[in-house]
Structures are given as C-alpha cells and as structure tokens.
Measured scan of single mutants.
Amino acid sequence: DAPDEFRDPLMDTLMTDPVRLPSGTIMDRSIILRHLLNSPTDPFNRQTLTESMLEPVPELKEQIQAWMR
C-alpha cells in the first residue's frame, strides 16, 4: 500500500498530481477539480477555493513517481 502522505485525503487513492490548497491540505488535482465543479470551496474548511489557488507540489509528485517504479 502507498504511504499515507501519497494518498488523497478525500478519496484515499494514490495521488498522481498533488496540489496544495491554501489551507495547507495536499490533494490530487483531479479530485479537487471534480469537487470544485460542484462547490467552489475547500472541502475541509468550506473557504472559497478556485483552481487558480491550487499550488503544485512537484517534490511530492517526484517522490510518488519514484515509489511507483
């Protein structure tokens, strides 16, 4: 099983494109984008959230890719 820090906190699946929300939570980009289609909010604190506020986490993405090899 993947380490917890590699798993999306909402869907508990392996992240492939991790992004940091303004709240500091790291999620998979595809999952948070799907959530934003229904509700333009951070799913953990209900603060306003837009796609432009998502910050890529390239170092975590590299760690996940290395773990998958």
Score class of each variant (00 low, 15 high):
residue 8 D to P: 02
residue 49 L to I: 08
residue 16 T to C: 14
residue 26 I to K: 01
residue 32 I to Q: 00
residue 64 I to N: 01
residue 22 P to Q: 03
residue 29 R to V: 06
residue 60 L to N: 00
residue 69 R to P: 06
residue 37 L to A: 14
residue 60 L to V: 05
residue 54 L to Y: 02
residue 30 S to G: 11
residue 3 P to S: 05
residue 8 D to S: 03
residue 61 K to D: 04
residue 49 L to N: 00
residue 6 F to Y: 12
residue 57 V to G: 03
residue 53 M to S: 06
residue 48 T to G: 11
residue 63 Q to S: 10
residue 3 P to W: 05
residue 59 E to M: 10
residue 53 M to G: 05
residue 54 L to H: 00
residue 12 D to K: 15
residue 24 G to K: 04
residue 3 P to L: 05
residue 48 T to A: 14
residue 26 I to R: 04
residue 39 S to G: 07
residue 67 W to K: 03
residue 28 D to H: 02
residue 56 P to A: 11
residue 21 L to A: 00
residue 57 V to Q: 09
residue 40 P to M: 10
residue 28 D to Y: 03
residue 22 P to Y: 05
residue 37 L to C: 11
residue 20 R to W: 06
residue 63 Q to D: 07
residue 67 W to C: 05
residue 31 I to F: 04
residue 10 L to A: 04
residue 52 S to E: 13
residue 29 R to S: 07
residue 24 G to H: 03
residue 63 Q to F: 08
residue 28 D to R: 00
residue 17 D to H: 06
residue 24 G to V: 03
residue 52 S to H: 12
residue 38 N to D: 12
residue 14 L to F: 08
residue 3 P to F: 05
residue 59 E to Y: 13
residue 20 R to L: 07
residue 2 A to F: 15
residue 65 Q to M: 14
residue 29 R to Q: 05
residue 35 H to W: 15
residue 2 A to M: 15
residue 68 M to V: 13
residue 50 T to C: 09
residue 64 I to G: 00
residue 63 Q to M: 13
residue 67 W to E: 02
residue 9 P to I: 08
residue 4 D to L: 15
residue 41 T to N: 08
residue 21 L to I: 04
residue 55 E to I: 15
residue 30 S to C: 13
residue 39 S to W: 08
residue 6 F to A: 01
residue 20 R to A: 05
residue 18 P to L: 05
residue 43 P to S: 02
residue 37 L to R: 14
residue 39 S to D: 13
residue 41 T to S: 09
residue 35 H to I: 09
residue 9 P to Y: 06
residue 19 V to D: 00
residue 9 P to M: 07
residue 52 S to G: 12
residue 30 S to N: 11
residue 22 P to K: 02
residue 35 H to C: 10
residue 61 K to H: 07
residue 28 D to T: 01
residue 60 L to K: 00
residue 19 V to L: 04
residue 16 T to L: 14
residue 39 S to C: 11
residue 34 R to Y: 11
residue 20 R to Y: 05
residue 54 L to S: 00
residue 15 M to V: 01
residue 29 R to T: 04
residue 27 M to G: 02
residue 17 D to W: 06
residue 66 A to T: 11
residue 44 F to A: 04
residue 46 R to C: 15
residue 32 I to G: 00
residue 52 S to T: 11
residue 68 M to K: 09
residue 42 D to T: 04
residue 57 V to L: 12
residue 32 I to P: 00
residue 49 L to W: 04
residue 64 I to Q: 00
residue 58 P to W: 10
residue 58 P to T: 10
residue 23 S to A: 05
residue 14 L to Y: 06
residue 14 L to I: 15
residue 45 N to F: 07
residue 7 R to G: 02
residue 32 I to F: 02
residue 52 S to R: 10
residue 40 P to V: 07
residue 48 T to S: 13
residue 53 M to L: 07
residue 11 M to F: 12
residue 58 P to H: 10
residue 10 L to W: 11
